[in-house]
């Protein structure tokens, strides 16, 4: 009947929050404890220089591989969200095609060291200078700034899990066939997020701050697409033959 505001009990919201938190922890690629243990491992200057002196296409390929690995975990996360696999196959693909990289950027704050402005990459913590060979300094700076601002919100794992699910279940993506179903699922996830924020006694404005992050994520992803197009215009064969097939499928 077009009503997208489901009546959901507290018990249902608790259940939804628990399932999404569990899905997140099962698919988060690295546990916080693992990352903390590695946090002292920064790239040495000669290692930084070795990344900087890589040919542009080699560094692009390396980053495409790392992004693809992270996206595979996001696909597993999506599959475990209650209701996701009940959506039609078209809409599952639409949501992952549009949202998987956004969730990778959200998850990046777990792997980010705000004090040193470094992110876990290829075995150690890397600053923006490590990615110089990509030729996308402005995008890299924006990605690091985004991670830093996400970190400043100090989200717990359950809050991060629910926000990731909220981002993934965006009902305003183009080409959805059963928009109403996605809207209901996103609404339920937002209520579960709100419920958890209240339970965790978080500040009142946090949900709004998180909503603002959605447009920042979209901007980062469209800039990634632009940079990829520019790269492909110069190196069409490299993308065609050396980039991971899933990456090409999602961003090609």
């Amino acid at each position: 009947n077009g009503d997208t505001s489901p009546t959901v009990s507290m018990a249902e919201l608790d259940h939804q929050a628990q399932i999404i938190s569990k899905s997140h922890l099962e698919t988060c690629q690295y546990l916080r404890e693992e990352l903390q243990q590695m946090s002292w491992q920064n790239f040495l200057q000669d290692e930084v220089e070795s990344y900087q002196s890589k040919p542009r296409e080699v560094m692009w390929q390396l980053c495409a591989v790392k992004i693809t690995e992270a996206i595979q975990y996001v696909v597993e996360f999506a599959k475990r969200i209650d209701g996701f696999m009940d959506l039609c196959q078209n809409d599952q693909i639409v949501l992952l095609k549009a949202g998987s990289l956004e969730v990778v950027f959200v998850r990046m704050c777990r792997m980010f060291d705000s004090q040193n402005n470094t992110v876990y990459f290829d075995g150690k913590f890397a600053g923006p200078d490590v990615f110089k060979a990509l030729g996308c300094d402005d995008l890299i700076t924006s990605v690091f700034d985004f991670a830093k601002s996400m970190c400043s919100l100090h989200l717990s794992e359950d809050e991060l899990a629910l926000f990731s699910a909220f981002v993934l279940l965006s009902a305003d993506r183009s080409w959805l066939q059963e928009k109403l179903q996605v809207e209901k699922l996103q609404q339920k996830t937002q209520l579960a997020l709100q419920h958890v924020l209240q339970k965790n006694q978080r500040e009142d404005g946090l949900l709004n701050k998180l909503r603002c992050k959605v447009s920042a994520l979209r901007s980062l992803c469209s800039r990634h697409t632009e940079k990829l197009s520019a790269f492909r215009a110069v190196y069409p064969d490299i993308v065609g033959t050396h980039f991971p097939p899933l990456y090409k499928e999602l961003f090609g």
Binding site: K79, Q92, I93, W175
Partner: peptide, 17 residues
């Protein structure tokens, strides 16, 4: 869309481990 996203479709079909 399914035809253009065979790998993603396959990943979605694989059972969760």
């Amino acid at each position: 869309l399914k035809e253009k996203h065979k790998i993603l479709h396959q990943l979605l079909q694989n059972s969760t481990s």
